[in-house]
Computed example of a mutant assay.
Amino acid sequence: MESISVLMTWPMSSYLETELEKRFKLLKLWSYPSLADFVKENEYVNSVKAVVGDTRIGADAQLIDSLPGLEIVSTYSVGLDKIDLRKCKQKGIRVTNTPDVLTDDVADLAIGLILAVFRRLCVCDGFVRNGSWKKGDFALTTKFSGKSVGIVGLGRIGSAIAKRAEAFGCKISYLSRTEKPYPNYKYYSNILDLATDCEVLVVACALTEETFHIINRQVIDALGPKGIVINIGRGCHIDESELVSALMEGRLGGAGLDVFEREPEVPEELLGLENVVVLPHVGTDTYETCDAMADLVVQNLEAYFQNKPLLTPVV
């Protein structure tokens, strides 16, 4: 398969690069100033049969149309919002992602964010480091155990978050397109009803047209001044300007955010709030999971070019 050209969109994983280079002719899009320059200057552009992207740079319509020989997109992510799935279907281009292997890490991080917001862990750390503890005790914080947790999207990751929250004695409710076979969880078909009935609202769904800004002013106000929002999905799930306003005005109790609308840009107002924990989109970023994701990307490509069934097909 060394003669097969694979285009990687940006340097997402050195291990993945190494594994791809062992098997394919790896082309690196970031080595060129732009896609237009790659198309103009690279002699292998017409022979590119596979694209490897992720949630930052995937395979949009422009990229797909620029590669006449493209046959498969293998994304280094579970999310598909950076891939033009409609165009892939039209052109018969296969698409794979990396589900399951990252579920535990993202679910663990969601619980970590909840604890960090309620127990003010980041602020506590600063309290010790800056010497304030020598002057007096830290203020009381809020308990997590026993809280009502609402989950937007009860797929693989949402279910794993629910399982972890149950271990804290939390009551679980959820929003999903259809009711799931979890008799101990309360199902809602309306986001406002879910937000009204929970103290912690966790966003764990895929980003689609329907879920764009699913957390808006009405939802935030339904959650209320003692509630917190946790987002480990995509930044565009939340109307960021409304979130900032609610936190600044005290209409929302707090937020734990691993993703943002215009990454890596983060609203300046959030950085000064002690009831907000912000992370640089690290939900899947452990050595173990990143390597497992890379292996799955490569295995899907190998399966495709050996005319074997794809391991995790999307299209």
Rank of each mutant, 00 (worst) to 15 (best):
V6F: 14
S14W: 10
E17P: 13
K25V: 09
Y32W: 14
F38H: 04
K49E: 15
V52F: 07
D54W: 06
R56S: 08
D60V: 11
L67F: 15
G69N: 11
V78M: 12
D84I: 14
L85T: 14
K91T: 13
G92F: 04
P99Q: 08
V101A: 10
L102T: 09
T103E: 00
T103G: 01
D105R: 11
L109E: 01
A110D: 05
C122A: 11
V123A: 15
D125W: 05
R129G: 11
K135N: 00
L154D: 09
R156D: 08
S159R: 02
A162F: 00
K163C: 00
R164Y: 07
E166H: 14
A167W: 04
A167V: 05
K171Y: 07
I172N: 03
E179M: 06
P181A: 05
Y182M: 11
N190R: 09
A195G: 02
C198D: 09
T208L: 06
E209S: 10
E209D: 11
E209I: 09
N231L: 02
I238K: 11
D239A: 15
E242L: 03
R251A: 07
R251I: 01
L252Y: 04
G253F: 08
G256I: 01
E261F: 05
L270I: 14
E274N: 09
V276N: 05
T286G: 06
D291N: 05
N300R: 10
E302C: 14
K308I: 15
K308T: 15
T312F: 00
